[in-house]
Design a protein around this nucleic acid. Structure first.
Lengths: 239, 239
DNA sequence: CCCTTTAATGGTCACACCGACTATTAAAGG
DNA sequence: CCTTTAATAGTCGGTGTGACCATTAAAGGG
């Protein structure tokens, strides 16, 4: 790269787009904003915006995340670059190259509205359709990536608050994968994977629960899960 | 994204960078080009170049791949987007955002030299150091990604010619992972994974080999490996 | 206050898979 | 013809996993 010789370089606009996920009411939700102006005025879209002259795409993504969600502290949130979308026709007015990110939030701060967007809203993933630009594609890619990374990384803890129960963690897997998991087996597997979660010294959750109080855990330090927590075989032959 | 409202957008130069891998003499090799001009003149770098006005990053990457390797047909080669590097200081002269790709070649077309670069050369991965820009980082990221994807996709076949033996396939894993694998076990695992490889109807390789002739296989159709072919546990506890 | 409901936790059992190993087969080379 | 080399076949024990069943500890209702 960076051979500035043979062909003159063309200037491009560079943006970031964010697929912000959270789990609410046992369903996967996505943060959408309503566009205020053309193109795609009044259509829903993923939050995002232009790169500023002196920030990286990662910094821009985190800044936009704060602006659009109204969260005061976005430092601890999981933010992950997905891929870059650069098809020539993806923006009707000019050449825009967009770096897409996925963000995972534990709880869902209810109201939002700050930032550029006219308004922002959490929407059930299944109900999302006809987004502006190629955002349907970006969102689908993001969801695939998240689902796959649950298998071999501790990413699921990014959907949980700092201290969580194994039941909540299992909820994350079941919601993202769309499958039910056996609770004792899930527990055994998670606890057998070193570095996935670690027990909170001397606590148990009591008040809210309906049944037996559950022990609390924190996210572990392992980047990769060994062995991985594989999702049930799609079909064909049982794993 | 794509809210052109609040902040004026800044123009950026957009490039693609390619980490082109092949396996030669049982060692991982990378294609490097020597830069002809400043910055980093006479330093080695990853091949790449500017996006043209009407092509996507994917198209630009494939075009550059053809230009720099001298390959006549780059349609079948595995090309995969890694991530985008956008740190403000990564190019000393101006703001350049670069979309990085990994490419995998089966054989190694010996000589090259076309394209922008002064010259191009295959280099052992271990011997690579002090590349221009942030290319050391890009290359390391690419290698990590390739190694990880061998586990849960059929990517390894992209290093092999259209018809290959299981021994060659095992070579790929051993070379990229840097570990020795048990041959009967590897064979059993590969053949037990549906869609990974399929036998060539009625052929066996004879002439070149020193021992018993090996059966030939083609790449299968499965995108993901179920179950995955996990690499030996790094350490700690045996898997 | 007791009994039901709910959910977490504990445990069993059989099977599949996997690593480590040994054995056999089929070529090339001297 | 014997040795070397590499592919292929098969065995065996340990472990992880799915499918279950059992127990515990809370909340809620009559």
């Amino acid at each position: 790269m960076d051979g500035y010789d043979k062909h003159a370089f063309e200037p491009f606009a560079v943006t970031v787009d964010l697929a912000v996920f959270t789990i609410r009411e046992a369903a996967l939700h996505v943060l959408l904003v309503e566009r205020g102006q053309e193109p795609y005025a009044d259509r829903w879209a993923l939050p995002g915006g232009f790169l500023r002259p002196d920030e990286s795409a990662e910094r821009a993504a985190r800044r936009e995340l704060g602006e659009e969600t109204g969260l005061t502290d976005v430092t601890g949130l999981h933010l992950e670059q997905l891929r870059t979308y650069s098809e020539p026709g993806r923006d009707p007015r000019m050449r825009v190259v967009s770096v897409a990110f996925a963000a995972l939030l534990p709880d869902a701060p209810e109201a939002h509205g700050g930032g550029d967007a006219a308004q922002a809203r959490w929407t059930r993933y299944e109900a999302v359709r006809d987004l502006a630009f190629d955002h349907d594609q970006i969102l689908a890619d993001a969801r695939d990536r998240i689902g796959a990374k649950l298998e071999y990384t501790g990413l699921a803890t990014a959907f949980c608050p700092p201290e969580f129960t194994l039941g909540e963690l299992q909820q994350v897997y079941e919601t993202v994968w769309g499958t039910a998991l056996d609770r004792p087996n899930f527990r055994r597997k998670v606890l057998a994977t070193p570095g996935f979660v670690e027990a909170v010294p001397g606590a148990a959750r009591l008040t809210g629960g309906r049944g037996k109080p559950a022990a609390l855990y924190r996210a572990g330090t392992a980047a990769a899960l060994h062995p991985p927590l594989l999702r049930p075989a799609p079909e064909g032959r049982p794993a």
